[in-house]
Design a protein around this nucleic acid. Structure first.
Lengths: 137, 137
DNA sequence: ATGACTGAGTTCAAAATTCGGTACTAGCAT
DNA sequence: ATGCTAGTACCGAATTTTGAACTCAGTCAT
């Protein structure tokens, strides 16, 4: 958690990851969307690549130079849960209203939410949960 | 999400929230645990109180002056999902091994995890999910 | 060939934040 | 009164962020 916080405890990083989840892959699009200073964007994208959350994927459009798409890795995509939980929390508590984008089931288009589940996969309410020490495992 | 990222896109804030979830409420305990500079801790705790994630609750031990416990509000507690998702991700992807503390069900002590659920409360795998625009709602 | 355009990275100086240390205030006991 | 200490304030140095300018290199048109 402390290590995760080191990677993710940064506003720009969170915003970049959100962009990536929205499907934005190009440096300049991210920059336009986020209003991030170039050196910040370059720095943070580089760090995300270094940490294995993103990869650079070269691509070439007809008539243009080679460019790089910033694509989430599996590890990066696994952060969807965290980012969605954060977005849900933001909707509920920071007065920003519903987010325009959410997770849906691929097959059916049904909306999905982040929640707690037990070992059988059944939902458990947050109020029924508590923190506890774990076994040595 | 951008607003949430503004509040939470900060390493110390994440670590303080983790402490709060562990039940640590006293300034000096947090400081000892986190190794945070005093002014950072004061600043971040103050911000968390300002944003309504925490409240200060005065208490008095016999023979000591009045002190303040930093207690999570409902909004703060609602971040359990986000923090747990982050911790789970950290376990899975940052090579830090299992966290010593996790969420369990109050009544049964069974371990809980963060996951995606559909409208019926059934678990949906992350690979079966995708981002989509939402209705106007 | 040259020139224009531009995508992304680099550099720079000013502003902001962080950090570690010190000083301070105020509540309690002696 | 003094001593201890919980938490805040202050300070200067170090680091990071920011916004602007610059740079390099790939592509196209002439």
């Amino acid at each position: 958690m402390a290590l995760a916080a080191e990677i993710l405890g940064d506003r720009w990083t969170l915003l970049i990851l959100r962009e990536a989840f929205y499907g934005v892959q190009r440096y300049d699009d991210m920059r336009a969307d986020l209003g991030a200073p170039r050196s910040m964007l370059t720095d943070r994208l580089g760090k995300l690549v270094d940490k294995g959350l993103m990869t650079r994927r070269p691509y070439r459009e007809p008539g243009a130079r080679a460019r790089e798409a910033y694509v989430l890795t599996d590890a990066g995509r696994a952060l969807a849960l965290t980012l969605m939980a954060l977005a849900q929390w933001g909707e509920d508590h920071v007065l920003s209203g519903p987010a325009p984008v959410g997770l849906v089931e691929k097959r059916t288009g049904r909306p999905l939410r982040v929640a707690l589940i037990d070992e059988e996969g059944a939902r458990v309410d947050l109020s029924a949960a508590t923190l506890a020490m774990r076994d040595a495992r």
